[in-house]
Design a protein around this nucleic acid. Structure first.
Lengths: 95, 95
DNA sequence: ATATATCGCTACGAAAAAAGTAGCAAGAAA
DNA sequence: TTTCTTGCTACTTTTTTCGTAGCGATATAT
């Protein structure tokens, strides 16, 4: 349940998702996440770092081995979500 | 990304997780989630309902077919999270 | 050296979300 | 009728997030 607490915060899942493409700079993440406020992004990155999911590397922030493992689990959401989105009226996504 | 927005709200993942055990009443969910405030629980349930993940049945709230499918994807988190929790100092879970 | 640009990040006020507590209306049971 | 439980709303306080501005550090160019 602590995992859901961590990942259930704003942008946490999005950051992990984005970082799966490789290392990104702070501002790159910021832009790819539809402009997250730097305050929150910084907080999420710190949380994910002390949780051993994200680390800093040569090319900026990147997933740790553990983080990549987590992304492996997260991956199926991608395909599932497109199916799911089609089964809904567009407006429902904004509630 | 809309999926992460929906599931990245407080208790959303927790509710889906709890409901996987079968139908639950409003108050049962409330207690199993370490006392979520009714305000938020009600909102999450409405969101998940209009998103076709949760529905109301004879025994209270329950997952739809789509919801069960989602839980199938969510399931691996369970085993992964225990491993993950062990690889961390206890305190890190509270940040 | 000076100017320019990009980087990670902090500060700060406003807005939104969640917590926490109380309690109501409806239905079932005694 | 009284008593319970259930789903849920109301209301206030606390926490989180947003949105914008901008600093200090490093790099690159002039």
């Amino acid at each position: 349940m602590a995992l859901f607490d961590l990942l259930g915060r704003s942008w946490a899942l999005g950051v992990v998702w984005q970082l799966s493409n490789g290392g990104m700079t702070f501002r790159q993440i910021q832009e790819s996440c539809e402009k997250v406020s730097p305050t929150v992004l910084n907080r999420r990155l710190k949380e994910l770092t002390t949780s051993g999911i994200v680390e800093r590397g040569a090319s900026g922030y990147q997933l740790t081995a553990t983080g990549l493992e987590l992304f492996g689990i997260l991956k199926p959401f991608g395909t599932w979500s497109t199916k799911w989105a089609e089964s809904l009226p567009k407006d429902d996504l904004h509630e």
